[in-house]
Write a protein that binds this DNA or RNA. Structure first.
Lengths: 212, 212, 212, 212
DNA sequence: GCTTAACCGAGACGGTACGTCCAGTCTTCCA
DNA sequence: TGGAAGACTGGACGTACCGTCTCGGTTAAGC
């Protein structure tokens, strides 16, 4: 099944240009915002011809998604380096046996990340694009969001085995009770984002709203 | 505190043009999508000069926000008309005494609304724009989202008085446990949106994840 | 034979506005140039509604032509005031008996006038417009240029009677030999405009190019 | 002395577009007149992006000047082709020994040209623009008018050598006696343009107005 | 080691939309 | 009812980018 039209030869691709484009795209999104970031601007800042961008990506969002993926990969690697422990899982959720404490810990880390300007600008841009562009949205979720959520699924399953979470629950849905509120506050500015808030979310979610 | 610069005289504003612009904006967003909706396109479809748009609004997003607000207002009015009951609250959440049932009912209605193409296109566009444009995002939330959420706050407070919800909970946060997951699935395509799903959310949220 | 459509009633016309419009038009043409002079600009500077201009004139050029006519009229009146002599002819060409001297004198005065910025800007603008807009051009010539040229015709006829100009010549054409070169240099920047130049023109024209 | 700002690379210029723009500009000026000729109109008629015009020219007048220059160049070339005689001078003035006849001949040809609609529309437009825009006016004169006038200078000098014109005359001024009147009549509609008229001009100019 | 095909930087090209400025018309309110 | 004010439709302005398309130059693979 051959490519329809002159698929570029990836083996001859310039690594140098690819990196420069990632850097330029992330820098511009951070500096001037996503809407004012243009393909021409990226090309010019990267010292690259426009065609080199169009050859390998299909849109501005596409470039940014890959650039952000690359950035996340680097960050994950760096984080793994710092954590010499046995648990190999990158960015894994700790399992100390205290579910509430573990979740609160991870959510606090997420709060920190959401405030890191280097991450905020591109991820917000991609999220926004994804809202209106379903194809990109699904890619964004599949490559970036879902892997993160899977960690919660794993932790919740472990908690079910330990008897800390009801066994009949669907962990994929359960995690949304405390993850989605944070996501929405961040995406839509519906409320402040604090440690206290995420701690509260965990408590509410685990214990339920109804009296015991 | 004088007006900045030659503010137009609102009393002379053409109601006809305003309506035509709202209609054109909503129609175009629904037909060709938000990114391909242009000010020129709106003006042309509305049979209006571009300047008439720029005179009263500052951006495409601004036009759409007002158009959607207007549309929502009309819809609310129409709904109020249909409900001859004593409870005057527009779009109010029913209070039958059964909290779970009431919430499930309202969330199912929300599911229906999220699927109504007439609402979906513009609200998705506004949400996307709001993610990346904080000023607009906050206006979107304040004028459209928060009033809806307030209804949940009211219902939860009533439930607290009835002893169906723990009295120490913050209702504004509590509601997020079942509202935000739906919002996120809709915004980010993180999962299917069904009645079953929203029913499950209500059950999980009221009873909690931990065993009783 | 009534006017086709609501001919304005000239008797109720505001003299105040008319004057203000003339002043504004002349001032703007002098300050920003003819192309950047706009009807809106004139109206605003004159403190007048746009409609008041459109009611009485049909175009920017039309306004300027009348304004300039008015200005010329005033100037002629002022000049007449300064000249208490018996000869009533306004701006008349002196008739001392020395044709060459008289023509040189008048042409030198014209040179001065062509350099007066108050006259230059509007008359140049009108001339330019007239080149490309035949109707206006003809009006410009008929109301402003031709009356001036008629003075030369008169003087040349007088000279013919005195035997200083060949009797068979057409004075209307003859005058062009020394007037048109000056006009062209002014209109088209084809050469410098000096007293020496106009003196030379008179000499060449009177004596001819061929040896005597 | 570096180029001011990102001068375009002339070697990559599209000859095809340049020609199409010339053709469109000349056609539009002839069809709808100079004031109604717009850059957008030229671009659209030429099947060219607006930017392609703005890249190489600074204004509508600029485009037209070059287009007309090009047209004149072609016409001159075509004329040279038709004249297989030894005298290489393009558009040269004949030198039969009879100055009056030669001048009358050339002026009659000029009368014809002034009436050729293909030349009239653009040259009138350029002349008008030049009246009000000194920079363009000077370019118009230097590139189009002056070279023509130089031919008269040459012919007059030859006549001086032959003793047909007084030796002390400045030919550059002398030529204006019969050229400028024609120019003015054409530019300002101050009179009809006929062979008889130009013949008369030559007679008057050569013999002078004063009796012999 | 020399050819050759590709990627590459550069940027001109045909387009679309931007946001602004005016033209000329229409409407409202004041004197 | 003339005039000041200014909102209206409409259209051109000059600019910014889009995505496509050459144009040398450089660079790596294959002969």
């Amino acid at each position: 099944m051959a490519q329809n039209q002159s698929a570029p030869d990836a083996t001859r691709r310039s690594e140098r240009s690819r990196r420069a484009i990632y850097d330029a795209a992330l820098a511009l999104v951070a500096e001037v915002g996503y809407p004012k970031t243009t393909i021409e601007g990226i090309a010019s800042r990267a010292g690259v011809g426009k065609q080199t961008i169009y050859r390998w990506w299909s849109s501005k969002a596409d470039v940014l998604l890959e650039a952000f993926l690359d950035l996340s990969g680097q960050a994950a690697e760096a984080a793994a380096q710092d954590r010499p422990s046995a648990d190999a899982s990158p960015y894994g959720i700790p399992d100390t046996g205290d579910l509430a404490a573990d979740l609160k810990h991870v959510l606090r880390a997420t709060v920190d990340e959401l405030r890191d300007p280097a991450f905020e600008a591109p991820s917000r841009a991609l999220a926004a694009e994804g809202v209106v562009n379903e194809a990109l949205g699904r890619r964004f979720v599949a490559t970036l969001l879902e892997p993160q959520l899977q960690l919660y699924v794993d932790r919740l399953r472990s908690a079910q085995e330990a008897g800390d979470v009801r066994p009949d629950l669907d962990p994929r849905i359960a995690l949304e009770l405390f993850v989605s509120p944070l996501a929405q506050r961040w995406l839509q500015y519906t409320g402040p984002i604090t440690y206290e808030y995420t701690d509260t979310l965990v408590d509410y979610a685990l214990n339920g709203l109804a009296p015991r």
